[in-house]
């Protein structure tokens, strides 16, 4: 286990890292969501995923996070280096906050700090609390938090555990103006440190220099399951 942590730590200092997705195809419930999707982001770069509901923005993030399997296509980190487990160098902030109402804010943060950082990394929950000015909430039960506060708690993971790739699914939902500002400065800092951000968003995140990938530009593909349409014409069914 420890060797993989060393690997993660060393990944942080690789400048010029590049994440590439090649000819990715996504299928859900026998239905094709997208096909032939290519993208690439380099260190210090940000990719904004736009497109209508159901276009597969979240599916793409989950794919990078290792939660979905691409039906076709593959990911590459740097040039040809596929040895690293992509999920272990990513942060994935999804719609669900992944917090336990029975634990306090501090306990929740401490758990993820210990679990995700592993061995001797000194992940400090005070960094997460400070980043979104949550210090006064630390000893409060997470059950008492408002939607916006829960969101800030989830985003706190970004600040306290260093990982080079951030996958953010609608990160600003439920946040007030001040918190959005704090998130933006956190993101800028991450990009300055040669991190990578891929985010889905409906609104402009206000990040200068972000590349936009619009799912609407993908060609629409026909569904195909176990059969070709030729079967139908042949009257086999």
């Amino acid at each position: 286990m420890d060797s993989s942590f060393d690997l993660i730590n060393s990944m942080l200092y690789i400048v010029g890292m590049k994440l590439t997705g090649k000819a990715l195809s996504c299928e859900r419930g026998g239905r094709q969501v997208f096909d032939g999707l290519d993208f690439s982001v380099e260190s210090g770069g940000m990719l904004e995923l736009r497109g209508p509901n159901g276009a597969g923005k979240t599916s793409l993030l989950r794919m990078i996070a290792g939660l979905n399997e691409p039906a076709r296509g593959e990911f590459e980190i740097q040039e040809g280096d596929n040895e690293v487990n992509l999920a272990q160098i990513c942060h994935f902030i999804a719609h669900q906050e992944a917090f336990k109402p029975a634990l306090t804010v501090a306990e929740n943060l401490q758990f993820w700090a210990d679990f995700l950082s592993g061995s001797d990394d000194k992940a400090d929950i005070s960094v997460a609390l400070e980043a979104f000015s949550m210090e006064p909430l630390a000893e409060l039960s997470a059950a008492l938090l408002s939607a916006g506060q829960k969101r800030r708690l989830a985003l706190g993971r970004l600040a306290m555990i260093k990982r080079p790739i951030w996958l953010l699914d609608e990160p600003t939902v439920g946040l007030d103006k001040k918190s959005v500002g704090q998130l933006q400065s956190l993101m800028r800092q991450h990009l300055d440190e040669d991190g990578i951000i891929i985010a889905t968003t409906h609104i402009d995140l206000g990040m200068e220099g972000a590349k936009v990938f619009d799912f609407a530009t993908l060609p629409e593909r026909a569904d195909h399951g176990m059969y070709d349409d030729a079967d139908l014409e042949e009257g086999m069914l």
Binding site: A87, C90, Q96, A98, F99, K100, W112, F115, R157
Partner: peptide, 13 residues
């Protein structure tokens, strides 16, 4: 239900 399981897949374990 609360999404913790997804984050649990992203550690080294």
């Amino acid at each position: 239900d609360d999404g913790s399981l997804e984050v649990l897949t992203m550690g080294a374990m």
